[in-house]
Design a protein around this nucleic acid. Sequence first.
DNA 1: TTGCAATTGCGAGTCATTCGCATATCTGGC
DNA 2: GCCAGATATGCGAATGACTCGCAATTGCAA
Lengths: 135, 135
Amino acid sequence: MKTLVDKCLEKGVRMTDARRIVIKVIQSSQDHPDAYIVHKRAKERDPTISFATIYRTLKLLEDMQLVNRHDFGDGRSRYEEMYKGHHDHLINLETGEIIEFQNEALEQLKRLIAERLGYDLRDHRLELYGIPIST
Amino acid sequence: MKTLVDKCLEKGVRMTDARRIVIKVIQSSQDHPDAYIVHKRAKERDPTISFATIYRTLKLLEDMQLVNRHDFGDGRSRYEEMYKGHHDHLINLETGEIIEFQNEALEQLKRLIAERLGYDLRDHRLELYGIPIST
DNA sequence: TTGCAATTGCGAGTCATTCGCATATCTGGC
DNA sequence: GCCAGATATGCGAATGACTCGCAATTGCAA
């Protein structure tokens, strides 16, 4: 099981303190932090790390397909480690809580629809927004 | 068949020249224009109309559920009249072209997934990104 | 250990969108 | 039709997320 650091080294990406910290933050986050939160968490490990570096490193990791960037409609990007299988998100409109889910039937349907339209599916984005069923 | 203007009047929304123009632009657009394009088209009808008014009017129409705002990941919002049934979008990664599609099985599946997770589905967003299948 | 290209922190710059405010425009009641 | 007051407009400035330019620092290969 390779770590993100291993994967970076493998691709010849220079491994700096700042990058190690951002990677650590991403790996130990179980939620979907935005850049501001990532910066806040990174500063706990090194108070001198800058915002620009957070953004640059997140972009680097995104380009390397090691991190996923999501836009949940609140005007800023949120990040999570790209690990295991694909999953989609359901956003609780009352609390902002984000629930992850996987559904193979859904994935198949997406591919099928794209194919019917004459396209090879390269990426997709699905978000459900709901409120908890009361009772 | 009520027009957007009718629907606005019905809800007691004051009908101004600027709003009539924005509505006209939205109604006669077959694509998914961003605010800049809406402004450009609106200026053809009244060169003095301002950007702020475009945004304010689009927001008004969005709040009234007469216009849909989409974010296709390029950093700006795109607008379309909210008419007929719900549909999703497939974005051609090579040309940026946007294809609309509807799929009832997909809609049912979305509702089912939300329900299983204990949520009442209030909104959702699905975008497929693909490249044309070459033959 | 050294050299130099890659990376960092900083502050300034972008870009889409929103706001504050003075002016202009609606619209319901006469 | 006309008026008053509430609303909407245009303008430019403000915001907020993100990116860039640059000088100083740092990683890493030889």
